[in-house]
Amino acid sequence: MLQLDLKKQYKPLFNPPSAGPVLVEVPEFQYLMLDGSGDPNNTAEYQPKVETLYSVAYTLKFMLKKAGTVDYGVTSLEGLWWVEDYESFSMTDRRNWLWTLLILQPEQVTNGHLAAAVAEVERKKGLELARKVRLEKLAEGLVAQVMHLGPYSAEEPTVRGLHDFITQNGYELTGKHHEIYLSDPRRVAPEKMKTVIRQPVKRPGS
């Protein structure tokens, strides 16, 4: 049976330096996705959606392993964050944030597998929210990214430094603010948490 470790296979994408941003090319990946809105610290919908996404992800993993298709580790939770009016995007005022939660999937996972996993999650856990999980591809291309060390609440200087790096190197921001949560906040002290901060970029006029 095929064995995959996606985080090891694509290590540069999951382990950028904390000393400063770098530019990397991100290939097209497919993800489990679930949308939401509002401040994740205050909205009642955030945590149930995280739990639902993980339930579907682990059900898929064990389903494909049992079938002898592929064995892989469930990767870290990720998030895309944006607002309708980009000029009003704020790291501190998150009431108008829109977001999509993501979990990276190997290419062997299909919509047929997802449908079976969703049905299983509904049957065993009664999570009707699982019906809203979708499998979708994301092609970010060239991105700037950096490792943020510390709590989520202290990300703003890291994000500002990333944006400065982008403009100083002759690029423009494009696409959505992307975060990869490498640490479990239930088990890791806030000052030791690691989060990849990623921003797609483009050359002006391209």
Rank of each mutant, 00 (worst) to 15 (best):
residue 187 R to L: 15
residue 173 L to A: 06
residue 185 P to W: 04
residue 173 L to I: 14
residue 174 T to I: 14
residue 186 R to G: 04
residue 202 K to I: 14
residue 177 H to S: 07
residue 193 M to N: 00
residue 179 E to P: 05
residue 174 T to Y: 04
residue 179 E to T: 09
residue 171 Y to G: 03
residue 191 E to N: 01
residue 186 R to E: 14
residue 184 D to M: 08
residue 198 R to W: 07
residue 195 T to F: 03
residue 196 V to L: 13
residue 175 G to A: 09
residue 196 V to W: 11
residue 199 Q to A: 07
residue 191 E to V: 12
residue 175 G to D: 04
residue 170 G to P: 03
residue 200 P to I: 10
residue 174 T to L: 10
residue 183 S to Q: 07
residue 181 Y to N: 03
residue 172 E to W: 13
residue 174 T to Q: 14
residue 173 L to W: 01
residue 170 G to F: 10
residue 202 K to P: 00
residue 180 I to M: 14
residue 191 E to R: 05
residue 187 R to Y: 04
residue 188 V to L: 03
residue 183 S to G: 11
residue 178 H to K: 09
residue 201 V to D: 08
residue 193 M to T: 09
residue 187 R to W: 02
residue 170 G to S: 13
residue 183 S to T: 15
residue 197 I to N: 00
residue 191 E to T: 06
residue 171 Y to T: 07
residue 175 G to K: 09
residue 172 E to K: 14
residue 200 P to K: 10
residue 196 V to R: 08
residue 172 E to A: 10
residue 186 R to L: 15
residue 171 Y to H: 14
residue 175 G to I: 02
residue 183 S to M: 11
residue 178 H to G: 03
residue 174 T to P: 00
residue 199 Q to F: 08
residue 199 Q to G: 06
residue 188 V to Q: 02
residue 199 Q to E: 13
residue 193 M to R: 15
residue 202 K to V: 11
residue 191 E to D: 09
residue 176 K to W: 12
residue 194 K to C: 06
residue 170 G to N: 07
residue 173 L to M: 14
residue 201 V to L: 14
residue 194 K to D: 02
residue 198 R to E: 03
residue 174 T to S: 10
residue 193 M to D: 00
residue 170 G to Q: 08
residue 192 K to I: 00
residue 172 E to M: 15
residue 189 A to D: 12
residue 194 K to S: 09
residue 182 L to V: 05
residue 184 D to T: 11
residue 200 P to Y: 12
residue 199 Q to C: 07
residue 181 Y to Q: 06
residue 169 N to P: 00
residue 171 Y to M: 15
residue 194 K to E: 15
residue 170 G to H: 12
residue 182 L to M: 09
residue 169 N to E: 05
residue 174 T to H: 00
residue 192 K to Q: 14
residue 173 L to E: 14
residue 182 L to K: 07
residue 201 V to E: 10
residue 198 R to N: 06
residue 191 E to I: 01
residue 202 K to L: 11
residue 202 K to H: 10
residue 185 P to F: 06
residue 196 V to E: 07
residue 188 V to G: 03
residue 197 I to R: 02
residue 175 G to L: 10
residue 202 K to A: 13
residue 195 T to H: 02
residue 200 P to T: 10
residue 194 K to G: 01
residue 202 K to D: 03
residue 191 E to K: 10
residue 175 G to S: 10
residue 189 A to W: 00
residue 171 Y to K: 15
residue 200 P to H: 12
residue 196 V to T: 08
residue 173 L to P: 01
